[in-house]
Design a protein around this nucleic acid. Structure first.
Lengths: 258, 258
DNA sequence: CGCATAATTGATTCAGCTCAAACCGAGTGG
DNA sequence: CCACTCGGTTTGAGCTGAATCAATTATGCG
């Protein structure tokens, strides 16, 4: 019954067998938040931590509630959106190594938006208490949290600028270009999420996205299935219009958001 | 000649006589960034600091450049906008006690937007070196910086949501209502900036703002000169539409932005 | 007083939304 | 193997909110 509910309501946790209760450092990828932090402190943090898996569509944090634990995305794509009846309104997509609504956890504020897994997703949870304790002890750890917070602020500002100064087609083009550039080693860059979620992220309707993809295709970039094909780089960059600092410098702020 | 340039280009510093080179604590208002920080450390920070005054229209930080020093707004209204030929694109308005682009200073990133004084403005500058040193020494200070960074992230998210889910008229109404509510002690709340700057902040044109003000007036809120008159509170709140967490809880995050 | 800047008003245009219908691909079950 | 849903995507037609362009009126301000 309860199980049936779960599945019908969009599927939250999956596969309890793979959940780690006290992950050790070598069970985790190298996370920027631990850079330069004294090893014993890292151990303490991990001792209070656990991991969780969500399947595509699962709600991770509900808007209006607060997350007592610090969430770190280990795998998958998470979107931050305001879910209201009738319309969704996207703010940001998070991916591996990103912090998920850190401010909510650190300052006990109700989340303004919901966090939702768009793909199967694995999350690391550090308990609020342990994080707070670590923050009181380690300036390195504090700096490691400030960096991604800055980076996410930057992403938010970019988003605001895009919404105001760029057309729908330009936003689509710029986003796909960015996605492609973030996968430099792969031969064929791929769009990791469904189109309708992309539309939400870009603040347009699915119908408009569909039409804009055609426009964009005329300017040198198109989708074949989920793979992104850049036919004419110069043209498409030109088309994107003003992107003041196109270098993906959010990564040096430990932000991997999209 | 150089002087002439300055004045023509929009007026930067004014009245050098009133600039403090090493302000002491009692020459400054109580700033949240110093809360709970060990007194000697505060002294050190202040010893490296100075204040600056800008007149309305003056550029404080130019987009693309980085601010080596940490700016704190002591007095006045500062707007963060992308200035491009043809169009300005506003992100946020800062006021007393707000940090101005802290991320730019802390992580040596080029600013995505310019900071411009909309009124006569006084700024406290803490040198980057001193701030960095303080951050390495005091977790309290680090926490004091994280709080406003979180608050500004929150404001940015609100802005994104507003741009996507609210009509121009709703944004105008909600903004004026908020401004009024932030002046609880004053008998007649007042709009502190020019209308055209308000328009930029709300992502609309001055013409549209003018028209929307008429619409908004029909719903219980109007301007008489610069003072904001709330004729029918219930009606105007209803009109504003979805504001998930209307309490001005950014203030507890040491953010006073608009 | 007179000039420059800001605000309003009107007429027109257009990007993106809405609504409705057709289409398509992947499961599913007979 | 095919028919049949059922999401998700595409296409089309029409609407509308806000931008643009242009002209006028207000408001400082030296």
């Amino acid at each position: 019954m309860a199980d049936g509910e779960r599945i019908r309501s969009g599927a939250e946790l999956v596969d309890p067998g793979s959940i780690l209760v006290h992950p050790t450092r070598d069970e985790l990828p190298d996370l920027p938040i631990f850079n330069g932090v004294e090893e014993p402190l890292v151990e303490t943090l991990l001792a209070s931590s656990s991991t969780r898996q969500y399947r595509a569509g699962g709600l991770i944090v509900r808007q209006g509630e607060q997350a007592p634990d610090l969430h770190v995305v280990l795998r998958g794509i998470v979107d931050l959106t305001l879910l209201s009846r009738k319309s969704e309104c996207g703010v940001l997509l998070l991916s591996s190594k990103d912090l998920l609504l850190p401010a909510t956890t650190l300052f006990h504020e109700p989340a303004l938006v919901s966090a939702r897994a768009l793909t199967n997703t694995k999350i690391l949870l550090l308990t609020g208490g342990a994080v707070e304790a670590a923050l009181n002890r380690s300036t390195a750890f504090a700096a490691n949290l400030m960096k991604p917070m800055s980076g996410q602020w930057r992403m938010a500002v970019r988003n605001i600028l895009d919404l105001n100064c760029r057309s729908a087609a330009q936003r689509v083009a710029a986003f796909l270009l960015r996605i492609a550039d973030l996968q430099p080693d792969t031969p064929a860059p791929v769009l990791p999420i469904a189109k309708r979620h992309l539309a939400v992220r870009l603040g347009i309707t699915a119908e408009t996205l569909s039409r804009m993809l055609q426009t964009v295709a005329d300017h040198g970039l198109y989708l074949r299935g989920r793979t992104i094909v850049i036919r004419d780089r110069a043209a498409i960059e030109e088309f994107c219009g003003p992107d003041p600092y196109p270098q993906k410098d959010e990564r040096i702020l430990d932000v991997f958001a999209l």
